[in-house]
Write a protein that binds this DNA or RNA. Structure first.
Ligand SMILES: [Zn+2]
Ligand SMILES: [Zn+2]
Ligand SMILES: [Zn+2]
Ligand SMILES: [Zn+2]
Lengths: 137, 137
DNA sequence: TCTTGAACCTCTAGTCACTAGAGCAATTAG
DNA sequence: CTAATTGCTCTAGTGACTAGAGGTTCAAGA
């Protein structure tokens, strides 16, 4: 049996975050000590590691809830799990593409200023005038 | 003189967002009609375009507030504006690098499942076991 | 057994940049 | 003049936590 602090040290997830996951229905309400403190079993430790890893990969609480729901039915088809992973991959790729466009614009904006005063600063001018940009954003 | 709806149509910024920018101190409180409705001058239209452009480039409300503060002093050095742009560029590059690592992991996770049931789904297994990953996240 | 200090509890509110909605008032076109 | 549209303020919700207040329980040493 682990206290919430034990669990926190073993997984690197802060105690308030563990309580938050419980509240969001990702962790089941654990047993309690006589004095009402949480006491987690090993299964919860593993589930918390799963949650943390999924979060680190950018999955939302909602997706994780679905995945946990699925993982209880080992005999069902895994198409839903595969779909969630593919959607997350697509979303990450999408964000990368958007950020790369921003990077291009920002590189120009951040490196082209030859002025010395605000009056002739390229940064200010570029922000005032989108037609200096190479793409839409 | 533009109503908030005029301004919204001309800039593509929704009316509640314009009010929000005013509340955040990015736009000055505009004149009002007899019936207390906002009436914006052309300067406000231009400032709103500036704000929107900066937001589209990912700058925070705080950074924009600083830039607006600077832009009132055309004779001062522009080092602060240049620094804000460079920091934003660095932050975008940082986020891209993190997302590219995620992309790699997610590509593996999302495309390697050869199982058919949840019990032998690679997605579920990969989320349970970070040692299958190629990097830290 | 007692005491002290660390760890734990619940609850509320704050973060960021909006967005949605309620309930009302003003404007504008016909 | 009326109806439709647009505007006003205020409150609350989003996601995934984080911080803090104010109180309780636990574990270890004396
Ligand atoms: Zn400059
Ligand atoms: Zn632009
Ligand atoms: Zn699968
Ligand atoms: Zn991993």
């Amino acid at each position: 049996m682990y206290s919430i602090g034990d669990l926190s040290r073993r997984t690197g997830v802060k105690a308030p975050t563990i309580r938050y996951y419980e509240q969001m229905g990702l962790l089941e309400a654990p047993e309690r000590s006589e004095g009402n403190q949480r006491r987690f079993a090993k299964a919860e430790l593993e589930r918390l590691a799963f949650i943390r890893h999924a979060r680190d990969l950018g999955l939302t609480i909602n997706s994780i809830r679905q995945l946990i729901g699925l993982s209880g039915h080992a005999d069902r088809p895994c198409a839903d799990a595969d779909r969630i992973a593919k959607e997350q991959l697509a979303s990450v790729r999408d964000r990368i593409a958007k950020l790369q466009k921003l990077e291009e614009e920002l590189e120009r904006i951040a490196t082209c200023c030859t002025g010395e005063t605000v009056g002739d600063c390229y940064v200010i001018r570029a922000l005032s005038d989108h037609s200096l940009c190479g793409h839409e954003h």
